[in-house]
Design a protein around this nucleic acid. Structure first.
Lengths: 130, 130
DNA sequence: CTTGTTGCAAATCGTTTGCAGGACA
DNA sequence: TGTCCTGCAAACGATTTGCAACAAG
């Protein structure tokens, strides 16, 4: 477990980190809470744990525009984008990205510390059948 | 006023639509509410008005990942992306986009009705000086 | 007139904060 | 020991819902 970063090694963090390492795909906080309910975590602690992981760069926060913050384990420093079904909200990874030139253009506009989000939405096969 | 779409022509809608047509840049609902307070609108009605405009395709909803839904007038059916300052949250338009090939790749994954969001974040010049 | 729209109050939902007790370094 | 972490209760902010009065087609 890599937490020699900035964070203390605690029971809650071990549980959450282990789950996120083993299971990919971004999870909302309540969703995670449900999946880990056998571990008897506190919801508020989970919110705080994920926020601290995010700040430490251990996880990446994803925003799919539905008012829910989702988190996924941050493997490398690279970007990660998703394809989200508009119906079932299931997300699949989609790592293709082409933003280097665009970020350069934005740097010329006077911005620093540039980052971006790129998310695709659609209706997945199984939802289309309904 | 183009509302021969699906929506009834009412006082509130005229006020909101006129404002959005004249003023660009996405506005949050509370923000709009403040700017139109002289017109004595109801906040809830404003939420509903924007939601109906969004559904009718009159406005576009933007999500900058800070838990606030913003809306901007939808000029054409084309995309519109933004550069958002991480400090002051001010958004500038950024229309460059070339995601056609990526959307094609996603179509091959079995998705239909594909759309995407692409937002850039950075620290703008004036916020950097602070 | 019939359906969609408004305004007000109250509810909801995801998330945050305060605080006291407890655990880690 | 001192700081960070946890859990519980309560607060919060953005948004939604219920409902009765109202206006548009």
């Amino acid at each position: 477990m890599l937490r020699a970063a900035i964070l203390k090694r605690t029971r809650v963090r071990e549980i959450v980190l282990e789950f996120l390492v083993r299971n990919h795909g971004p999870f909302g906080t309540e969703e995670l809470f449900a999946k880990l309910k056998s571990k008897k975590l506190d919801l508020v602690t989970l919110y705080r744990t994920l926020a601290s992981f995010d700040k430490a760069g251990v996880v990446r926060r994803c925003d799919f525009g539905d008012g829910i913050a989702r988190y996924e384990f941050q493997l490398s420093r690279s970007h990660r984008h998703h394809v989200i079904c508009k119906v079932c909200r299931k997300a699949r990874n989609f790592d293709q990205c082409f933003s280097d030139k665009l970020e350069q253009a934005i740097a010329k506009m006077g911005y620093s510390e540039i980052s971006h989000t790129l998310e695709f939405f659609g209706v997945c096969k199984s939802c289309r059948k309904v």
